[in-house]
Design a protein around this nucleic acid. Sequence first.
DNA 1: ATGTAAGTCAAACGTTCGTTTCAATCGAAT
DNA 2: ATTCGATTGAAACGAACGTTTGACTTACAT
Lengths: 211, 211
Amino acid sequence: MALPDTRTKILDAAERLFAEHGYRGTSVRAVTDLAGANLAAVSYHFGSKAELLAAVARRVIEPITAAQCARLDEVLARTPDPPVAELVEAFAGPLFDEMPAGKESGARTSRLIVTILSDPAEEARGWTGPDEDTVRERYLAAFAHALPGLAPQELMFRMRGILAVTAVDRVEVYQQPSPGCVSPVAGEAARQWAITFLTAAMSAPPTRARQ
Amino acid sequence: MALPDTRTKILDAAERLFAEHGYRGTSVRAVTDLAGANLAAVSYHFGSKAELLAAVARRVIEPITAAQCARLDEVLARTPDPPVAELVEAFAGPLFDEMPAGKESGARTSRLIVTILSDPAEEARGWTGPDEDTVRERYLAAFAHALPGLAPQELMFRMRGILAVTAVDRVEVYQQPSPGCVSPVAGEAARQWAITFLTAAMSAPPTRARQ
DNA sequence: ATGTAAGTCAAACGTTCGTTTCAATCGAAT
DNA sequence: ATTCGATTGAAACGAACGTTTGACTTACAT
């Protein structure tokens, strides 16, 4: 097996450090030290720290988006009217499964996504491509079909809820459990709980206007 | 009306800037400039930037915790066996209502909470007091009573889901809506949607072990 | 062997950061 | 009027940051 080149080693190190300490909490020097590379290698290979973050984010998000797309194809090939539960599983499942770097525990990937999405730094935004928008639009249409009578805005709210639940759960897996409380369980159990939780939530009848 | 003193002006400015740019994205100079105070005033009144964050967090969280506690008292006084919907409303409601500084739009408060909770900076943690733990334990017991048969760990997962949904929704209210998608709606509608979403999710039957 | 482009390296650049210092100022008790 | 603690002010501290520079090394086509 060939040694990874400097560019890949930097991407691996940055993915790990961004996930653990956030964009602003990670210095370029920390990345190059962990990667065993020279400080100037980041500028040389990526141009700037912000572009390094974009490269890391793209590498992580891409296979997730692809899996969401593929699973929706499978579901729609089976039936033109998929139930909510199957759509939830197809959309949320890849957020638990994927492990783009292919090396370590999958929790770090989700942690990275959350860290990036919730980072107030401007550099942490604007790296999304057209693929993410396409997948979201397709799921939006599928959910709208499975949930007639739900206002588009409330449907958007619920879609964001899916991301919120899968994301914030993984955040706390990474943090130390607070004293005296049941520690979160990683892996397959959390995935099943999330599907249960989100399927029930997405299937809720539309909110009635206040009487 | 008396002018606010320097300490309060700094707290107000810091609350706003921490909410918008996060802990690491906010410099002490930016806080004192916005507050119209001297740079050294932060060290003098709070000791350090980290302790300033803790003071801001405490001021924001305190009335929310108090409201959650009071509403649970009301619900339990009405019936010893409150339904899930009432518990969800009592717990999640204050996260939408409260506006501790009493001055501007409530969305910023939630934005601050999310920013703090999801901030990878170590300084952003460790400011929680015993009150938050007490309230969580009380709701945990109430939900456990209303949802017999649910494993404690899955219940913890669902409690985190409540925070996730209320929090991340408010995050995106603050961000600009992505192009071509329905923009999130603030205020009362989001509150009602969240109650609907979370009540259905919390009421879901326990997840069966995989067959 | 020679030339060329890509990649790596140590060192330094200028800026911004959190914090500290110490003198100046204020308000109230003496 | 004077004293004294509390507060504010301008200036500077050392450290860490992202980025750039220019020489050096490597690999390969000529």
